[in-house]
Design a protein around this nucleic acid. Structure first.
Lengths: 346, 346
DNA sequence: CTGAAAGCGCTTACAG
DNA sequence: CTGAAAGCGCTTACAG
């Protein structure tokens, strides 16, 4: 493995010049640059990252804790998110370091240790929970981080975040169902303790009210995110005698439950009842009819996360140009409705 | 951030002694060790990983390429695998570095670059394909790696691997269905080009033959891994007039298709027809009835992968104690049948 | 525009 | 059992 020194000797320049050729090529005379570049290629030189990091004290690695779900529930869009996150990191010459940690505050020493030993420069947080204690802890330790997802239940956000506007997403789904002729649109939700659920539900309610559609008794809480619960809640809606002809589900899994219950009653999704899910998980395109679903723009989310985390100015409280809160560290992105057969046949 | 030097000054010893306290505590006198340990704690010292890696030229990082599926298909057990892999790496004080790369040979420069710049010590490969060219390429470059999954289509494996015995898994499923009274057991498969599919199919066939069950016209090929195709193939089996009462599917998705087709015909999975899937993906426990499925032992797989990759002897052709092929670099693990309602009601 | 030198924070033979 | 010194491969002021 060639070193800087060897390249320098080969090109008959100093190591400093080779380093500059790599990191500040404009400082070199064109002919020198070309000579050095040729030597680099000839010797197949690749700068040693550890030496660089030791010197600059930046490892260009971002820590991400592999989520572990309690009840064996999976993060169905996990590979989409990771792929986008890796891609965004690589676009800035960085990479993602994966690790595991206990849930909540108990896991923080792991975060702290990774940062203290300089395995990572900072963290991307996800699976944000209501009153999530991690954000505040990291901020106090002055450890750089950015969150995918707002921390619900706080009046002021404990740090920079990127999130998707779930309320807008659900409102869009309602409007789409309305446009396809639905007039009694139910909502399949989660328990009230979820800030995420309340946000999405508010979008459904608001859109219904704006369209003069009823909402009373049309929102059903599911105790867990399973097909079974989705089917049960759908049965409850269908049996309520309100003539439900549309269902906005807060997750693809619950929507799948809706599809199953419809099928069991001899009803056709997309014809008799329009159904939408949330997340556009791989399942949405694999069922039949395809499931209309609200897609989070993963590439954009990942790009914003990395941009915020790696922006030098983001850690300073106020940017030079303005005295207001630096807007760029709080990004709310718009989801996209992916329409399939469950809401629009043919 | 405290350094070795500061700890040494505080404990009134040389830096060498502090280093030894951390890496070879047995070399110190108990009282010295205690004094040094106290200083380390007091100063909250954490060794800088970059400095260590620069010196030892080992980064303790293992590269893993985030799989990207062509047709938006997801790796449903991806988070299980990653969680296990991270855990196994951490158990040996290592971590996983994630990256993206083009599929096949085109991606190899990315692997080579990560290794050359010392971002990783080696790689864990997965999503192994028939005649996968990556393994041979890495071996030629002398880049350490281990594969999750055999390379099908080769007479001799191009490198160390850990795999799960899919044939045994499917045979177990057949025997289970037989024990619950099934006598005409179909097999839902993939195209013949998949070595993985042929392996699993062979297990189904062998078990059927041993139990004197028919196999003729009972294996159906699905063109893609979707619920739709699983349903279609199931319909084909049911319509063939062979009195099919059991279905072993090569994937959970195809099994879900089977469940849907049964439901559409008013048949009850687990009662009228026993159904099994493969992978025990999160879906298996979320559908109703629960899907009986063949589970790959992820923790064990990950443990073996890391053990092989980090074993000093694994790269040498022959171990000292014996002259035969070092058995420990080719591990075939046994899957486990997770029984749920789709094959055994109540 | 180019080069000699210091130093990032460790580990590792090598003496004592 | 303990310590002084070299060196891993870079980058970065600082001179020239």
């Amino acid at each position: 493995m060639a070193t800087l020194k060897q390249v320098a000797a080969h090109a008959e320049v100093s190591v400093q010049t080779v380093s500059n050729a790599l990191n500040a090529p404009h400082r070199l005379r064109p002919d020198t640059l070309q000579r050095v570049t040729k030597s680099i290629e000839l010797l197949n030189y690749r700068p040693n990252r550890n030496a660089r990091s030791l010197r600059t004290s930046a490892v260009e690695l971002i820590g991400y804790c592999v989520p572990s779900w309690p009840h064996g529930q999976a993060h169905l869009v996990m590979d989409q998110f990771l792929h986008s996150l890796c891609g965004a990191a690589e676009a800035t010459a960085r990479h993602i370091l994966l690790f595991t940690a206990p849930v909540g505050l108990k896991g923080m020493p792991v975060y702290e240790d990774l940062h203290a030993r300089r395995l990572v420069d900072g963290f991307v947080l996800s699976q944000t929970e209501t009153h999530d204690p991690r954000h505040g802890w990291l901020r106090e330790q002055q450890i750089p981080f950015v969150s995918f997802g707002r921390v619900w239940g706080e009046t002021t956000q404990p740090g920079p975040f990127v999130d998707v506007d779930g309320a807008v997403g659900c409102a869009t789904a309602v409007r789409h169902l309305h446009e396809t002729g639905r007039r009694r649109i139910g909502f399949l939700s989660w328990p009230k303790t979820s800030g995420l659920a309340e946000d999405r539900l508010s979008g459904w309610r608001k859109a219904c009210e704006e369209l003069d559609l009823p909402t009373k008794n049309l929102a059903v809480r599911c105790t867990e995110d399973t097909i079974e619960e989705g089917a049960r809640a759908t049965a409850e809606l269908l049996d309520s005698g309100q003539g439900v002809d549309g269902i906005v589900a807060i997750s693809d899994i619950l929507a799948l439950g809706a599809l199953r219950e419809l099928g069991a009653r001899g009803l056709t999704a997309g014809v008799d009842v329009g159904v939408t899910g949330f997340d556009d998980s791989p399942l949405a395109s694999v069922v039949s009819p395809g499931l209309t679903s609200i897609r989070q723009p993963m590439d954009q989310i990942a790009g914003e996360l990395i941009a915020i985390l790696t922006d030098k100015h983001s850690s300073s409280a106020v940017s030079d140009e303005s005295t207001q809160q630096p807007r760029s560290t709080e990004r709310l992105l718009q989801p996209e409705l992916v329409i399939r057969g469950s809401s629009a046949p043919g």
